[in-house]
Design a protein around this nucleic acid. Structure first.
Lengths: 143, 143
DNA sequence: TTATTAGATTATAATTGTTATAATTAGTTT
DNA sequence: AAACTAATTATAACAATTATAATCTAATAA
């Protein structure tokens, strides 16, 4: 249940050193229910680590991705977003304000199978984003 | 059936001028079965328009997106890709060589409905990418 | 056809997100 | 505690995209 503890164990098991910066970045990713960019993480931890470099944030996000703790997401906008991997879910994105909400739904296995059959790919996984207008923005659409 | 002609009509209808550059970019998007980046388009048209600026490519891709002729796609890699909109389809992407193959499949309406119900969003559309290893790369995976 | 004008293109500079490099620092192991 | 290796920092480099200002041109109508 303690996601942070499990994540730290994963790092230990894969031989990745646990530094204060890593600890803080992981903690931030787990606790933030948003899907932060590297820069948001950097700014959020500025108080605790005044000397931390942006490179450290990027390096560690890459490490976390490589050991499977974190997923890197690219939407239409400029920078990548990072999502601590818990259970399988999709993202619903507001086209007005950019809010991202998690949407839990059983994986679309049959779609994967069909895609594999039609294209000849050995299919691994998929991602899906659903776009719309969030409740807060309904009625405020720009045309 | 003539996609280019229809696209040009769309531009005319929305009051967007048809310049030689626009014509060429549109034509290239329609004929290339790939999903080119802005830079690929720029390089491909270098011969015909030696003086064309990259900014022109970007500007026009934005215009095409705004009038609904083109979809901008971001995958994991650095730059956006652009897809002339025809019928509804998904993309199957090779994790080894980056090849992108179209995969036609009826839209996942029920997923949209459920997402709308659960999140309260007014859902508009969705996108999905399926990742795997293409036939050419099978057996050549890097670990 | 020509003149007009709003909009498009060009060339360039600026901006932004991300990665590479080299020196320093700090976990971990002996 | 010493040694070794990996991580962090600071900085520079890079690449994709956007902004700006000057020039040019497609569409329109006289």
């Amino acid at each position: 249940m303690n996601q942070l503890k499990e994540a730290l164990d994963t790092l230990k098991d894969t031989g990745v050193r646990i530094t204060p910066q890593r600890h803080a970045i992981l903690e931030y990713l787990i606790n933030s229910m948003s899907h932060p960019t590297a820069d948001e993480i950097y700014k959020a931890l500025e108080g605790k680590f005044p000397n931390m470099s942006v490179a450290t944030v990027y390096n560690n996000l890459r490490v976390f991705r490589e050991v499977g703790l974190v997923k890197e997401l690219t939407f239409g906008d400029a920078s990548s977003r990072f999502d601590f991997i818990t259970t399988h879910h999709y993202h619903v994105i507001c086209q007005q304000c950019g809010k991202i909400v998690d949407f839990h739904y059983p994986g679309l296995d049959e779609v994967e199978h069909l895609a594999s059959h039609v294209t000849g790919f050995k299919v691994d996984n998929h991602r899906m984003e659903i776009y719309g207008i969030c409740p807060d923005c309904t009625g405020k659409e720009v045309h």
